[in-house]
Design a protein around this nucleic acid. Structure first.
Lengths: 338, 338
DNA sequence: CTGAAAGCGCTTACAG
DNA sequence: CTGAAAGCGCTTACAG
């Protein structure tokens, strides 16, 4: 590999001049800087990563702890992983990926060996060993999601409570009085998942606060279960909901819409539908669904920004919730006049 | 962070003794070794990653180039990413994740700065810029998949040709004479994807070689298209295929099985079905499908093993194909007697 | 404006 | 069996 000495020799300057010319950390005569840059490019020089790390400042490496649980919807998970990597690149950081199997040991290893400058935690559950570990390690870290105990942590997440309220209040404002919500698989609620219970509870609270007849149905991702849930939701004789909120992954929404279509239910004339906290493109569904996006890219960008600010000590532990917003595609209207 | 000096001081030995005791690179009196290990554990010592890299030997870091294309099925992609990370850990290696956006620059950066010891390429297409780059960089690298030009590369992949032959010959042996294959989305075949065309061509060749009436239908992942393809495949009056081979992702297979079930097609009595080159659990499908697995974990383990062997120079460029195998779940039988 | 030199924390020949 | 010391390739105070 070509070293700083090679560049110095080629440019006819000292190695410190090369370093300064390339990092821009002190002013250099235009001509000298150009000569150095030319030599560096010609030789394909890049500062040795190990040497840069050793000098103490920054390693330009971040660890991403991304456990993939059994029930996790892979595309959403992937969106967050890519979001973190791409956001990190904006700050000239690369990302070391840590998996489920190696979560605790991995975080210990990469931080205690000073391999990484900081840590990003994905997919935290209510009780999560990694949260405690990160506190113990004292490394700059940002959690995407909100664990039960946020003491001493920097957390970013969509405000799921407000997302639920946003969905409900929009429907209420249009006159809906009976609203159903189809949630994720029951297992998700049983293990200490992060946001699904938060959304569910806020949905029920928002309905209660508005005197709304609410139904919440968790739903497993298979055709039979979806059909059963759709049955339960639509066949409440004389009192079927006039609006449906999805808080599920894409396949369930697609299956449910398919079923509703086959049964001749017209959206939004007979049923208003909102897709809540979805990380995928609901405009590709049939019909396209109004959506409160789960903004993976934005959450990741914010998480990385907060990690960077921890590196220069300008950020203290806190929970930062992203304000949810609504995107219309025409799947919501007033309730049918009956 | 605690350094080797702290450990040396705590154990009352020199830093070189600490290094040797911990790496085991020369024999140390049992008692001394124990004292050093205790001190290291007590202090939570871990050799500084930058210093270790700088000393020249190994960085213990690998780059994984994992571009996520539009049509890619996320769970399969994720299985390979996790497979690489977990396999790397077996050799005490961590993985730096490079994405689509940063593929070329990223590979340049991490290898020219000596951040990584080697590279693993995922999801290569027939013509792939990364293959040429890896050749140019001269870094140990392993490709999972087989690009058009394998000159100078180390490649690992399932033998898709043989997988297609395996499926066809199994059906032929049972007496099937009309076989249909449902493939991936047409877009996959048009852009220079890696294995789908290889599978398709081998399927058609195997059928031709056996004098079999073959149909190959690419299929987009949405309910309407799946239904249309199933129609085309099953409604060939008087000459409907007696066996079906899936070479698609999980949702398409699930949708197709659902449709077949609703139409009262009994598997395997009326129709034999094989799931070919699937990275997911076909035993969870309804009905469970006989499968020729796409062994993500095994491919990744092999790719990492080959990368390690390139590091000590004991492996030369070559293409290594993994022999496909068949797992039975009862979805294959002889053709119906008519 | 530029250079010589210290030092980051290891590993590993070289001594003893 | 163990220690003192060189050196990996940088960055950055310190001189000039």
């Amino acid at each position: 590999m070509v070293s700083i000495h090679d560049v110095a020799q080629a440019a006819g300057v000292s190695i410190s001049t090369v370093s300064y010319a390339l990092t821009g950390k002190r002013s250099i005569t235009e001509g000298t800087r150009l000569r150095v840059e030319e030599a560096a490019n010609a030789l394909g020089y890049r500062a040795n990563a190990g040497a840069r790390m050793l000098k103490g400042a920054r390693t330009n490496l971040l660890a991403l702890s991304a456990p993939l649980h059994a029930g996790t919807y892979a595309p959403a998970h992937m969106a967050f992983v890519l979001g973190v990597v791409n956001a990190a690149r904006e700050y000239d950081y690369d990302v070391v990926l840590l998996t489920q199997d190696d979560a605790i040991d991995g975080l210990r290893r990469v931080s205690q060996s000073s391999l990484v400058d900081g840590i990003v935690l994905l997919d935290v559950s209510t009780v999560d060993e990694r949260a405690g570990l990160v506190r113990e390690l004292g490394v700059p870290a940002t959690v995407i999601g909100v664990p039960g105990d946020t003491e001493g942590l920097v957390c970013v997440d969509l405000d799921f409570e407000r997302a639920a309220w946003l969905a409900v209040e929009r429907l209420v404002a249009l006159g809906h009085r009976r609203i159903a919500c189809i949630g994720q698989s029951p297992a998700i609620y049983e293990r200490g998942s992060n946001f699904p219970p938060r959304f569910r509870d806020a949905f029920l609270a928002a309905c209660a606060a508005n005197g709304i007849d609410a139904v919440f149905e968790p739903c497993v991702e298979d055709a039979v279960s979806v059909a059963r849930v759709i049955d339960r939701v639509t066949e409440r004789l004389g009192a079927a909901p006039t609006a449906l909120v999805f808080q599920t992954n894409e396949p369930v929404q697609a299956m449910a819409l398919d079923l509703l279509g086959r049964r001749g239910v017209r959206i939004p004339e007979e049923l208003s539908v909102i897709s809540a906290c979805s990380s995928f493109e609901t405009s590709h569904l049939e019909p396209a669904l109004d959506v409160i996006p789960l903004p993976a890219e934005q959450s990741c960008a914010r998480a990385i920004a907060l990690t960077m600010r921890q590196l220069d000590g300008t950020v203290l532990p806190h929970v930062e919730l992203i304000e949810p917003w609504f995107v219309e595609y025409g799947s919501v209207a007033g309730p049918p006049a009956d």
